[in-house]
């Protein structure tokens, strides 16, 4: 599903250039759950941003379902993103001025889904995520775990082919963190491809494959046996 080749990303400031990604090659199959690990500053979030079309690399190619995405302009990128991808962030990134319901509804609005259909889809996912009684609340009225549930709900409401998660449990305590990880596993089992950036090997153990980055290079790739057997 994803084929990344010879990807290079450089951050420039007035004085220094930092190579965040250097000659990255990466393939992700449909239905896979891939974890990207590595020390701080190794480039894992940058890689995720590039995969989510949130950032532009300098060199390389990025095929998604046989479409080359790197040549797209801003509008095309936005369109592609909203149709195919969902995002979950460490800091949830909910819009403070919108209620839970409205936050989840937002991607559907950008996808130009009719109002009644929007309502149905949002209610469906709210129920599935077990946050029905919170739908009228504003993000700051929720606990971290609840906020992340809303964020996951928002990522899933458009039924994306790929979910990109950036340290989804980073701001949560372990029990809430586990809940979120279980949620992602369920999704994966239902067929959604997931790429997750994480620091925690506990979280990574939920995935099929773990990719280790250091200084912008892929230094190792490891299949997660337990999970793969489960999958089989």
């Amino acid at each position: 599903m994803i084929r990344i080749e010879k990807l290079e990303k450089i951050y420039k400031t007035e004085e220094i250039e930092t190579t965040a990604l250097n000659d990255i090659n990466l393939h992700v199959k449909e239905g896979e759950f891939v974890s990207i690990m590595g020390p701080s500053g190794c480039g894992k979030s940058t890689l995720l941003n590039v995969m989510g079309l949130l950032d532009k690399p300098e060199k390389g190619s990025y095929h998604f379902m046989d479409t080359e995405l790197l040549g797209l302009n801003d509008r095309e990128r936005a369109n592609f993103r909203k149709r195919n991808m969902g995002f979950v962030f460490q800091n949830f990134n909910l819009i403070d001025e919108l209620t839970v319901f409205e936050n989840i509804e937002l991607p559907l609005i950008y996808n130009k889904i009719a109002t009644s259909e929007r309502k149905r889809l949002v209610n469906e996912i709210i129920e599935r995520m077990n946050i029905v009684n919170r739908s009228g609340h504003f993000p700051q009225q929720l606990s971290g775990g609840q906020q992340q549930r809303v964020a996951v709900a928002r990522a899933l409401v458009t039924k994306p082919k790929l979910v990109l998660a950036d340290e989804p449990t980073g701001n949560l305590d372990s029990s809430h963190g586990n809940e979120v990880m279980e949620l992602l596993c369920e999704l994966n089992e239902a067929g959604t491809t997931i790429v997750m950036v994480t620091h925690s090997s506990h979280d990574a153990s939920f995935s099929n494959r773990i990719i280790n980055l250091k200084d912008g290079h892929v230094i190792s790739e490891k299949m997660n046996k337990g999970r793969n057997e489960e999958l089989i």
Partner: peptide, 9 residues
């Protein structure tokens, strides 16, 4: 967030 969710410029 809006950009991520697909809002165009």
């Amino acid at each position: 967030v809006k950009k991520v969710l697909g809002a165009s410029m």
